[in-house]
Structures are given as structure tokens and as C-alpha cells.
Amino acid sequence: MTRTITIENMPPTVTGRTAASSGPDPVTGDEDFRFHALLFPNRSLTADGFRRVLAVVIGVNLVNAVIYFTLGAWPVAFFCGVDILIVWWAFHLSYVQGRRHERVMLTDDALWISRVLPSGHETRWKLNPFWARVEFDRPASHETQLRLVEKGRVLILGSFLSPQERGELADALGAALSKAKTA
């Protein structure tokens, strides 16, 4: 079976760093949700685990730096310090990317999708739940996309989730949209 990668072509309703304050409020505080999901990327290492890994990296590089420095190869000690900085920087970038999230909110009259990038830039889409449908290819693989389609326009959801998580989200959101259409 051939899978095609779909390109997102749905224009946002509201966009910008302060979309939450400048755009229409997607839901009021007392509104009941038919479906509500907050999606975050998976983080495989806690803050305590990061400190432990960095401590091991620092320890190993410090021992190597001392050995090479005593042997007269002092430039190697400099590169051991650079190794520590590179490992810290890579983890820092990973944690920054972990701030990305998406929020899916289904009410009686609208399906709101909010995507917040690590920079704080927010993009929102408002879809009509009677026109929106969920598309997800089975069996799920790494390349499988969860697509929301409304009148030929496509919005990709949860690209940072695992294939199993995207499948579970597709099932739950599809069921919620079906209930909203029949109610």
C-alpha cells in the first residue's frame, strides 16, 4: 500500500505571538467540551535524568582532560570542554522543542485547533464540526499522518506523537465528531 504525504493547506483563523489575547476566544470558561485534548511531544529524560547524564559527561571529560593535559596534549583538554558544551546545547534544544504543543477543543458549534510553537507563536484554526472529518491511514507507521479535512482543506495534527498515539487520537476525535454531528 502506497502512503502519500499530505501538505497542510488550511489557512489559520488567528495567528501571532499573542493570538490568545488578540484573536477571538475559542471557548468561554464555562463552556462544556465534547472533546478536549492537550498534546505535547514525548520527553524521554526528566530534569533529574538530564543532570545525571550531564554529570557523567562532565566526569568522563574531566578525567580525559586531566590525562591528556598531563601527557602534554593540552589542546585535547579544550575539546573535552567543548564536548560538554555540545551535549548541554543538544539537550537544551530538545527541551525547548518540548514546549511545542497543540490543543484540540470540540464544542457544540466549533472545532478549535491551537498550535503553539516553542517561541510562543500561536496559530489557531476554527473548523465547523459538521464539515470536518478525521483521516488516518491504517496500519499506523512512522510516516502516517493524522489529517483533519474540511471542504478540501487539510490540517495535520500531532505530527510529534508516536504512530500509536496518533491512532488513538484519531479514534477518539473521530468518535467525538460523529457524536457532535448526530446531536
Rank of each mutant, 00 (worst) to 15 (best):
L111P: 05
L173W: 07
L71E: 03
L155I: 10
V60S: 11
K151A: 14
L146K: 01
I84T: 12
A140N: 05
T182F: 03
R43F: 00
V66T: 13
N42Y: 11
V76L: 15
R166V: 04
E102P: 03
F33M: 13
S119G: 08
V27N: 02
R153A: 14
R147G: 03
G174K: 04
Q164P: 00
M1K: 12
A77Q: 03
S141H: 06
S94A: 13
R147D: 05
R100G: 02
A19Y: 08
L111Q: 09
D108P: 02
R103S: 09
V14M: 03
F160W: 03
V53M: 06
A110H: 13
N9F: 03
V63K: 07
G98M: 09
L157M: 14
V66C: 11
H121S: 00
S21Q: 10
V154M: 02
V104S: 01
D25S: 12
K151S: 14
M10Q: 07
L54P: 01
W131A: 13
P163M: 01
S178R: 12
V149C: 08
N9A: 04
F136Q: 03
E143K: 12
L169D: 09
A47V: 11
R138M: 06
L127I: 11
P129R: 07
S21R: 13
R3L: 09
P11M: 02
N9T: 10
A77R: 06
V57R: 08
V60G: 06
I7L: 08
I5D: 04
S178H: 12
G81T: 01
L161Q: 15
